[in-house]
Simulated scan of single mutants.
Amino acid sequence: MKKLKMIPLMALAVALCTQGVAQRANVPTPVILDTDVGNDIDDVLALQMLFNYEKSAKINLLGITISKSNPRVIEYVDGYCRFNKRGNIPLGYAYNGVNPEPFRYVPKTLDTLIDGKKILFPKRSIKSGLPEGFKLLRKLLANQKDHSVVMIVVGPETNIANLLNSGADEYSKLNGVDLVKKKVKLLSVMGGVYSNEFDFAEWNIEQDLKASAVVFDKWPTALVASGFELGSKLLYPHQSILNDFKDGYKHPLCVSYKVYDKMPYDRQTWDLTSVLYALEPDKNYFDLSPKGTIEIDSKGKSIFTPSENGKHTYLKIKDTEVKRTLQALVDQVVGK
């Protein structure tokens, strides 16, 4: 009789164990975004992807740091977060960052009136006293489980270099490098050129060249780079902007897209590729280079050297996967 009773007990134990593993597997991935919204429209598309991932419970977007040093970008990002019902998300700002110019779509979208009403309703501004980007990063990382955070960086790397160069503070006794090493699982960064198709310094890298060199030199965990050549092969279709969004005529993303350049145009998806790989690496949308080391030279060029012990890789894509990957990008922006 004792042996017969043990069978259901063992089955129950196995079931509970299996349930526990399943629950852990479904825990949303903690994500931090560092962005230069305003310089290109792909930042807004990437941000919308992240909000849609969060709505599907795949991620927990811990915070957003802004590397573009223009006060109106704070208002735009805050308003866009509120549009997606995330008005409480922590924001950080690079007060001495690069590119103070407002460029096109940030001020125009903020000032747009449709049916006599604004389409973005920010509550935070430069007067709100946002923390320095690297200070917010330290605070967010210190509160997360070890080796759990995915960081996505899609602009100049000012905040990230400041994080790595930071010392102990009220949030952690660890310096920046050690804090990252303890808390971050992956850095997915849009920056560099890794093919023979182009021979120039990629924009994100050269904007804050000193910061870029620091990040690629000091980053202590896995780093996956998406180069200029990758996003150039995947063009976001303007038809999606025109047709895929409910009330698209007043959707902030669609308005910003139409303001950024003369329609119709299909924009490169540079920043989007870093988001898609970071959060769905198992879907094989991209191939990875061999392991190695990426060095940023004095002119801003990204030099990759293969090495079995290297922590850096970069993304590639087969021609046969372009259509499927582009559709995945569009679906995630739209929220299908």
Rank of each mutant, 00 (worst) to 15 (best):
L174K: 14
V215P: 00
N143E: 14
S289C: 07
L187N: 02
G38Q: 04
H238K: 05
N204Q: 13
V177R: 11
N309H: 11
K246T: 11
H312Q: 04
W203F: 09
D217A: 10
N96Y: 14
F304L: 07
L223Q: 08
P107C: 04
N99V: 14
N175S: 07
A225L: 11
L12A: 12
I160A: 12
T313F: 00
D42W: 15
D178H: 07
D111Y: 09
F134L: 01
S274V: 09
G87H: 04
I160K: 11
E308K: 14
Q327Y: 04
A225F: 09
F134W: 07
G87V: 12
E101L: 09
D42E: 15
K55Y: 09
Q48N: 15
V224H: 02
C81R: 09
E229K: 03
V21D: 04
V330I: 13
P122Q: 08
V214E: 01
F83Q: 08
A211N: 03
K301S: 05
T65Y: 05
N39Y: 14
K145N: 14
L253V: 06
N88R: 11
E197H: 07
D319K: 06
E101S: 15
F228Y: 13
D78A: 12
L179D: 05
T112S: 02
L272I: 14
V44A: 10
P306Y: 04
I32R: 08
K258E: 01
L315R: 03
K118C: 00
G155I: 01
N39M: 10
E157V: 05
S307C: 02
G116L: 01
D40S: 15
S56P: 06
F121R: 06
R24C: 11
L62F: 04
F83G: 13
D261Q: 13
I7P: 06
E170K: 14
S69G: 06
G167Q: 13
K318T: 03
P237T: 01
K183N: 02
P220D: 06
L234T: 01
S302G: 09
M263S: 10
Q144S: 03
N26W: 08
S67Q: 14
G248Y: 03
S212H: 06
K68C: 10
K218Y: 07
